[in-house]
Computed example of a mutant assay.
Amino acid sequence: MAETTNTEQYYKVLDEGAAILQKEKDLFYLEALGSMGELLFTQKFPDEMGAGPKENLENIINTLPPEVQREEIRRAMQLAILKGMKEATQPHHALTPDAVALFIGYLTNIVLSKETDDPVLLLDPAAGAGNLLTAVLNQLSKKGHAVGAEPDETLLKLAYVNANLQEHTVDLFHQDSVATSTVDNVHAVVTDLPAGYYPDDKKAAEFKTGADSGHSYVHHLLIEQSIRHVREGGFLIFLIPNGLFQSEQADKLQVLLKEDADIYSLLQLPESMFKSKESGKSILILRRKKQGVIPPRQALLAELPSFTREAALADMMKRISSWFDDHL
């Protein structure tokens, strides 16, 4: 029989504990998972909890492995969140694929490698459950402090638990990042952009990328808002829909980028990662313009190999790292 990994053991504690809290407090699984994560962090049981469920939870918690790495906790949380999303998926409930989150962490570490500030400050304006943000923090070679914003209360609670259990310093805000500013002068923005329309036309009209009529694309507005938040010369790494620059509102986005930022790289993810060609995504790396910073004559454009082809992916990562060494 194969030995159980720390990730599997930690997931089992989260899952079984969430199931008890789900039944005891009549919650959705994701809500119960947030409560279970908070319980693991604070070690405080709800006052109204009966003796039986409390004892069961204590027994489950006692099976936690003695030493767990941050990535093991993140992956365990990811597994539990994925289970919860299958139970009652909302249109905006989606988790950045693990391999993609790790790859974005790798890219973030590359573009921040020349920064002299320590710690670096990151922003995720659409933090979700905090999976991408903590994956990036786990890969930084220097200390990182992060700020995240998320309008969905359940996902925000999971992001809070994710950061706490992994012992990261993260400030989280319950807010819509288009309507409300978060923090300025960050070293980098990293986010999995939600795609779709933004409902508040009046607020969208305040943006360069706002549509002349009808609803504006929320992903366009978030790109513009993110450029405002990053410091001059700072980087922005977005997970974007492949059709970002082919949509009917793309003209305004292209004008914005020409005025305020430079495209450093566009990396298309393997089609095999997505259910259909139309749902495919890419990683877009921008840099806010800064006097004295000369952008590359040609952006790095590439189609990434399947993440299961380890040798091909390793070769691509080496080429990407070398390109950024030459252009930073």
Score class of each variant (00 low, 15 high):
residue 14 L to F: 10
residue 15 D to W: 03
residue 17 G to I: 02
residue 21 L to P: 01
residue 22 Q to L: 08
residue 23 K to R: 12
residue 23 K to Q: 11
residue 29 Y to R: 13
residue 32 A to S: 12
residue 38 E to A: 10
residue 38 E to M: 11
residue 39 L to C: 11
residue 39 L to Y: 07
residue 40 L to F: 03
residue 41 F to M: 07
residue 42 T to C: 08
residue 44 K to V: 10
residue 48 E to G: 08
residue 52 G to R: 08
residue 54 K to T: 15
residue 61 I to W: 03
residue 62 N to P: 05
residue 64 L to N: 01
residue 68 V to K: 02
residue 71 E to A: 07
residue 77 M to V: 13
residue 78 Q to I: 09
residue 85 M to A: 03
residue 87 E to D: 13
residue 93 H to Q: 14
residue 96 T to A: 11
residue 102 L to E: 14
residue 104 I to M: 15
residue 113 S to E: 08
residue 119 P to L: 14
residue 120 V to T: 14
residue 140 L to I: 14
residue 143 K to F: 07
residue 146 A to P: 09
residue 148 G to Q: 09
residue 150 E to D: 06
residue 155 L to S: 11
residue 157 K to G: 06
residue 159 A to S: 13
residue 165 L to T: 01
residue 168 H to P: 03
residue 170 V to C: 01
residue 171 D to W: 00
residue 173 F to P: 05
residue 183 V to G: 06
residue 183 V to T: 14
residue 183 V to P: 03
residue 186 V to W: 08
residue 186 V to H: 07
residue 192 D to W: 03
residue 196 G to W: 03
residue 203 K to C: 09
residue 223 I to E: 14
residue 225 Q to T: 07
residue 226 S to D: 10
residue 228 R to K: 12
residue 236 L to V: 01
residue 241 P to E: 13
residue 245 F to H: 04
residue 252 K to V: 01
residue 256 L to Q: 06
residue 258 K to M: 13
residue 270 P to L: 02
residue 275 K to M: 06
residue 280 G to T: 11
residue 280 G to F: 02
residue 288 R to V: 00
residue 288 R to E: 06
residue 288 R to F: 02
residue 303 E to Q: 15
residue 304 L to Y: 05
residue 305 P to A: 10
residue 312 A to W: 03
residue 313 L to P: 08
residue 314 A to S: 12
